[in-house]
Amino acid sequence: MATPPPTGPLVTQDDITAGLRRLGVESGETLLVHSSLSSLGWVNGGAVAVVRALLDALGPRGTLAVPAQSSDLSDPAGWENPPVPEEWWDRIRATMPPYDPLTTPSLGVGVIPETVRTWPGALRSAHPQTSFAALGPRAREITDGHAPDCRLGEHSPLARLEELGARVLLLGTGYDTCTAFHLAEYRLPGPLARIGRPAPGGGWETVTEVSITSAPFAELGRDFERERPVVRGTVGAAGARLFPLADAVAYAEGWLRARGPGARGFPHPRD
């Protein structure tokens, strides 16, 4: 059976750099990127070409940040895609390798963040499940101090990115991937969750964390885009959106507060 031809368009590193500049990415800025390689077309050089293009557009004074999450370092009792037999759970917990920022691969965020994570000079934050990786002069500022009991809140790279005036680039992805909205969740009353994961020195630990969900983010993003300035364009074949992270967090905080706990799938206090 013949191999089907690749789907286009053919996209090069220079094409992506030019598209980013047309969109408004500025040399010297700090950018948090959520991305989908397949949405760009047939990229000559794959994820490496995309990372090079991002670094070209940002220039030597710019900083690139990406989510580098490792959601597989979690309690097997909650695994759904796929689930594992219950009789395996205790052994999985006892033998799961602990998080290592140098060797633990990212999962579920695409090949571009994993390419950034392994890029020479990249730094990665310390949270074992929701780390971020960064390249550039502000990488250490962004990744340092990620508290082990703060996935995406005040003691995470998201808050540092907000302080630094970073912008968010959704490159072929929707608002459901926008981690900045989670920072707003941390600033609102809500339930806590017990999170199981491998302990740093081996074995198993459970920490108390803010309960978060991205379930309403697509609707939240549509409203945000209607009411706040969002630059929209195309990079390669991918739809792209560019906006200030602080603006997204502030809007999300008001949006979620106005709708109450039910907007995040949490029970209303009176229920």
Rank of each mutant, 00 (worst) to 15 (best):
E141P: 01
T118R: 14
L64S: 07
G28K: 09
W89G: 04
Y99H: 13
T104G: 09
T63I: 05
A133D: 05
A57L: 13
W79H: 05
R93A: 11
G78T: 09
A147T: 01
Q129P: 04
D144Y: 02
R93Y: 10
E26I: 12
A126Y: 12
P67N: 13
T63K: 10
R124D: 05
A147K: 01
D149F: 04
P82Y: 10
W89S: 09
E80K: 13
R140C: 08
H146D: 00
T30K: 07
I16R: 03
V51K: 12
P120E: 04
T17R: 15
E114L: 08
S71Y: 11
D90T: 15
S36H: 04
S106H: 05
R22E: 09
P113H: 11
T104R: 14
D15P: 06
R61E: 15
D15R: 07
L32P: 07
R117H: 03
P148E: 10
G46C: 05
T143A: 05
P120W: 02
S27F: 03
P113Y: 12
A68V: 08
A139N: 04
A94M: 02
N81E: 11
P101R: 14
S125R: 07
L20W: 07
L135D: 00
G78Y: 10
H146V: 00
W88F: 14
G24V: 09
W89P: 05
L55C: 11
A133N: 09
H34N: 06
T104I: 02
T103V: 12
A57H: 06
E26S: 13
E114D: 11
W119D: 01
A47H: 06
G19T: 00
I142S: 01
P101L: 03
E141D: 10
G136C: 01
L135R: 02
R21Q: 13
R22S: 14
A49M: 08
G19V: 00
G62F: 15
P120T: 03
L32W: 05
S125M: 06
R91Y: 14
V43K: 00
D15Q: 01
P67T: 14
V51Y: 06
L73I: 04
A49K: 11
D14N: 14
T95M: 03
A134E: 01
S131I: 07
I16E: 06
A53I: 15
T30H: 08
L102G: 15
T130H: 15
A77F: 09
S106D: 02
A53P: 10
E26Q: 12
R117N: 01
L20E: 07
I142M: 05
N44H: 12
R138A: 14
G19A: 00
G108V: 05
S70A: 15
G45I: 03
P128M: 06
R21L: 15
A134N: 01
P60T: 13
H146C: 01
P83T: 05
L54T: 09
R117E: 00
V66R: 05
R52Y: 06
R91D: 13
H127G: 14
R91N: 13
P83W: 08
R21G: 03
R140W: 08
G45H: 04
L32F: 08
R138Q: 15
W119F: 06
P83C: 05
R93K: 12
G145V: 00
R61A: 15
S38N: 08
L123D: 09
A133C: 13
V111T: 08
P120G: 04
P76I: 13
W89R: 08
W42V: 00
A139I: 03
A147Q: 01
V33Y: 07
A47M: 08
R93T: 00
W79P: 04
L31S: 02
N44A: 13
